[in-house]
Design a protein around this nucleic acid. Sequence first.
RNA 1: GGCCCCAUCGUCUAGUGGCCGAGGACACCACCCUCUCAAGGUGGCGACACGGGUUCGAAUCCCGUUGGGGCUGCCA
Length: 467
Amino acid sequence: MTVVKVRVRFSPAPTGYLHVGGARTALFNWLYARHVDGTFVLRIEDTDAANSRDELVDGILRTLRWLGIDWDEGPFRQSERVELYAAAVARLLADKAAYYCACTREQIEARMKGSANQGYDGWCRDLGHTSGAVRFRSPDDGQTVVHDLIRGDVVFEHATIEDFVIQRTDGSAVFLLANAVDDVDMGITHVIRGEDLLPSTPKVLLIRGALGVPDAPVYAHLSLIVNEKRQKLSKRRDDVAVEEYREKGYLPEAMRNYLALLGWSPSGDEEIVPVERMIAEFDVTDVTPSPAFFDVRKLEAVNGEYIRALPVATFVRDCLPWLEMDPPWPPERFDLAVFERVAPFVQERVRVLSEVRAIVDFLFLEHPVIDPDSWAKGVARVPEAGELLDDAAGAYATCPWDPVALREVTAASAEARGLKLAKAQAPIRVAVTGRTVGIPLFESLHVLGRERTLERLHRAKERLSAL
RNA sequence: GGCCCCAUCGUCUAGUGGCCGAGGACACCACCCUCUCAAGGUGGCGACACGGGUUCGAAUCCCGUUGGGGCUGCCA
């Protein structure tokens, strides 16, 4: 018995950026290929020239690489394999398994009006046209069974399958034909793709049969990823471009891990698992058949976990794009050494990397941006705010400049005023950072320096007095 | 309309006839820790869509109902 090596393929159409659904399909193909030590083929389905653009292909490849999904063969482009499709169509035509059709959409609809059936009625089957679109002659009876690893056997009655177009009037192949030809030519053994393609599977199988290919690949139709209304994600309405998540500061490992959780789960109670373990445990048969909602909040939680698990130096490096590109502070004021000192505190407070700038901006801005709500809550509505600010300014002018000492003198002030430290630190925090929340205050002051701290305390006092 | 798929906490899931008075994760709530916010810890809320079968026994098998979704293009 010969053991046939598993060959899978991810075949996106470059009609837009790679979206989360496509990314998950690619991921599951990749995980399966790596799990069984098979071959992962990348194929670009760009038979529709009008809707395909080169830069979109580049974007898809870039995103796959970012996610750590590598391919063993390809990328092949269907636009470069047109002779193969033309030859296949010629053969089907010669075998009377396909025929030319000259009907327009309008003519078909006019004929079908009032009929219970929809789709094409086979009008041109025996008219002997020699030009136009080419339609596959679907059998009138019998059935095709799709053997699906996730859904079991799915039966399609041939009577419900219309004579579908396999070649456009301009001579280009439709994906059904190209798909059938390529999967045979590339020796694809397992087809893992979205459930939206399930109804097209019997058509592809019919084409393969007419082309003289007796066997079929094993199919696995993944459930769709849906939005809050439980509809298939739409590029237009939903936030689905993987590239956008990258730009917001999601880590590729986190995105990959989250995507894998949609329809699959690792053994045990841990959901955050290294990719090696995913590969070791992944099997398409274990994938859930029901649709999954793309929950950004859970993605954020997963991303937060990945961020916290990073070595600090790596975290700092990963943050650089957000600190250096179009920052809210004058670029020349940015000081990497300063950021490195507070990085450990920042790291456990962000869920996406783009959040770092708002947490550390006070360190690089000439003056902190005072958040109105924070001012109201932390200063204006605190009766002792003025006194606390004065106490701090006085004590900070002479005390040793380290977090412990700063905390001590601040606590002493609080106690003298009959306040808890938690309450007393608020006006100071707002004065210096602009907000009531943030990284530990005394560490912040320490990094900021005595001079700038005192200056900010005085400005806040002036602002308070002016009201 | 026709064809097809799906159905466990709000969400993602574990569960393949007895181990389930249904487990985990996210979210939410409470408490603890605490200079704020986080992080961390503890606890809580919370589901087998419905109706029939099959069986000694059903979340698990079968049928139906209902609900949701996909496809129905000379896009893929």
